[in-house]
Amino acid sequence: MSDAKPPSIGELFSRNKRDLLKYLTRRFGPEDASDLLQETFLRLLRRDQGEAVADHPAFLQQIAVNLARDFSRRRKFEATCLEFGDPPEDAPTPDAPPGARLEEEEAMRALREAVAALPPRCREAFVLYVGQRLTTVEIAARLGVSRNMAQKHVRLALQRCRAALDP
């Protein structure tokens, strides 16, 4: 058994953030990558401190790979959950003029892009709010965040969706 002192989280972050961020950015883009990088180090902090880690960079890489896998699964799941129900009564019908149908299609595309561009936790809160009709208290409990943070996530998502739909 070695008497070497394990590196601090700050040292690990300084040494490994660049490689992990590159990996996550290639997979998900810069906005999601920074959130996933933060989650990688949070998981390292939350792990059982009694566990000995022989190779910290490899351990961090494995956490990032697992997070990437989970994130991809969640995105696929969210894509199937984000159904906006029946079209509103004033939605263009198939026999509507092409201009009206085109406007509706562009609005839906803009909305989908706005939701896809949200940070992961914000998107997750929005899906729970819109898709499952949970309250912000229920969302906070599900995500393990404060009620205030859940409200901020939902508010941001709604603002970005409204902005995407405004001409």
Rank of each mutant, 00 (worst) to 15 (best):
A110C: 07
G10L: 14
G50E: 15
R43W: 10
A140L: 15
R74M: 11
D166T: 07
Q62A: 05
E113Q: 06
G10W: 05
A140D: 15
L37I: 10
Q38S: 04
V127N: 05
D32S: 14
L37Y: 14
P167R: 14
V130P: 01
R109N: 07
R147S: 03
P7I: 00
R162A: 07
L82H: 06
T136F: 09
D166P: 00
T25R: 11
V130E: 13
P94Y: 01
T80E: 15
Q132F: 12
L156W: 11
V154S: 08
D48E: 14
F84V: 10
F77P: 00
A4Q: 05
V130H: 07
A125F: 00
H56S: 07
E83P: 01
D19S: 13
N148Q: 09
V137I: 05
A140C: 09
L158R: 02
V130L: 03
A33H: 04
R133Q: 12
L45H: 00
R47S: 11
Q62D: 14
S34P: 07
L24N: 10
E78Y: 10
D48W: 01
A140M: 08
F126V: 13
T40G: 06
C81I: 12
Q62H: 11
A64V: 02
P119N: 08
M149T: 10
P92Q: 09
E113A: 07
V65N: 00
P167A: 15
D55T: 02
R46D: 15
A125G: 03
Q61H: 07
E124H: 11
V127G: 03
A54Y: 02
A54T: 02
A141K: 14
F28D: 04
C161S: 15
S8E: 14
E31W: 09
S2Y: 03
E11D: 11
A96M: 09
A68Y: 06
P97F: 07
L44C: 00
R162W: 10
A96G: 08
N148L: 12
R155S: 06
F13Q: 11
S8I: 08
